[in-house]
Design a protein around this nucleic acid. Sequence first.
DNA 1: TATATCATCGACTCAATAGTCATTTTCACT
DNA 2: AGTGAAAATGACTATTGAGTCGATGATATA
Lengths: 295, 295
Amino acid sequence: MDKKKAILEAAVELIAEKGYTHTSMQQIADSVGISKGSLYSYFPSKEDLFVSIYEHYQQLVFERAFVVGLDHNLPPYERFAKQFQVQFEGVLEYKSYMRMHMRSESAQNSEKLKGLGHRMRGRLFSWMEQNLIDLYGEDIGPYKWDLMWMTQSIYTSYTGLMTSSEDEDQISPQELGKHIVRQVDILANDFLSGKSTPLLDEEMMRPFSVGMDQAGAFTSFEKREKAWEALYKSIHELNNSQYYIAITDRISEESRKSKPDEIVMKGLFHLLKEEEMLEAKAHILEQQILPETKH
Amino acid sequence: MDKKKAILEAAVELIAEKGYTHTSMQQIADSVGISKGSLYSYFPSKEDLFVSIYEHYQQLVFERAFVVGLDHNLPPYERFAKQFQVQFEGVLEYKSYMRMHMRSESAQNSEKLKGLGHRMRGRLFSWMEQNLIDLYGEDIGPYKWDLMWMTQSIYTSYTGLMTSSEDEDQISPQELGKHIVRQVDILANDFLSGKSTPLLDEEMMRPFSVGMDQAGAFTSFEKREKAWEALYKSIHELNNSQYYIAITDRISEESRKSKPDEIVMKGLFHLLKEEEMLEAKAHILEQQILPETKH
DNA sequence: TATATCATCGACTCAATAGTCATTTTCACT
DNA sequence: AGTGAAAATGACTATTGAGTCGATGATATA
């Protein structure tokens, strides 16, 4: 199964550089060091490989923000900024994937890819909506489409900026997260003060809102996300939740590193499991996060 | 020469719909109703055809904003908004081209296209810079990169929105122009009040600023633009400039229509040519704008 | 009508590459 | 060592489509 990941990585690298159509299966196979025939035993077609890349990386980048969003110990403003921050960190980490993504190219052909893109857009909007409500309450309703549109356009453009520059650390994800939230806040306050009138409404945004959960909630899609969600939920039901939240945040932080320290994670999970009420949930998450250790 | 335009239009339509790689020269030829061989007598290669599309349409959309920018009778704020407006009108008019453009795809291969894109980006930034200075004076200097980046990301995303929806007139270009300038104004004032710190600087933006004129001026690239510029300049040297500006604005308005009324234009040019000082410049512009009428 | 010039045509070449499959290699287990 | 299943291989097929080129037709001029 690790071979599959190696193929995905090699393919991303090549496609980011030369584009989908100009990257042949042969080149990908050569780059991984296997034959074309083997390649086809892992992925039934080129398109399928491409879709798998999206499934793999999109989840990876977005999940960070999801998990940070679960930590309701941070105040809304800081939480929103932190969510941007971790997402930008993801952007830097998976720069090649982002570059590939930015080229869009070929997003048209595959029905599967269209569906995937649509769902992701839905999640993005749902995520933004949740944050806006956390920040400004339901009053923001009439302006939320304008704000969300503005937010995503700013987010996307900064992603492009980070991705385009070759040298690392030109812009700090933390700074950028704060910056974006600040801009959004300024615009939101202007709307709330009644000085600007909104331009967009649900009707116009329908292509983007389909796929959003009816309640507009920030829903999770993947098993791993569900596991995080369940754990945080259980913690909040405890009395001394602070302690366990601190531990869980630490796990979250560690898991975002490119090379998480397994021993540290194991220890942290042990701390969680001491509390009987958390044991089950912590175990499930641990299974999801840690690679299956032999024996 | 009209055939060439027909080819460009057919190609844009097809490429917008199916993408560059999935549109064959044969299909384009069929769509125009000529043979592949003939196609190659107009354009030496597929890539060349593609580049020509960009050259043709990019200029068409951007030129509108340029010409409006020359009219210094409008106050800066309204002028900026109007420039966005006419550009969005262009976006609606050349929706297929815009769709094609949005797909980005293939921008990588051609050196020529890279150069073209680079130059256009330079013009866009130069244009925004000029408008920011007109609006806020030189004080805006330290914040201009952040503002320009924000502006272009908002502009781009609304362009995408207009382009994606099938039915016309969901959003009014005029409304949208005002809207964008309003958002930019809010952010600019926040910067100027010292409440926000900028994140971007010249260094980071170098990839986008190369190609901008050293003086940062909003320079013209094409003969037609030069002609407009020269005419406006001559008018401003006159005493009773108001009258001639009104005429010229009317010409500009007419020329933006999809089917400009040639007779009206001819009449308007005649009015300009009455003034001896304008005769030459007006004539040059007329040559550039009006299709060569037989005899 | 004859001839020269130019535009148009479409059958053809040729390179690229997605996907297949018979053969070979690897390896676990006797 | 021997055996058989599973994995890996790469030569092969089939298709697509960019670009070519000699043949054909149209137009203008003498």
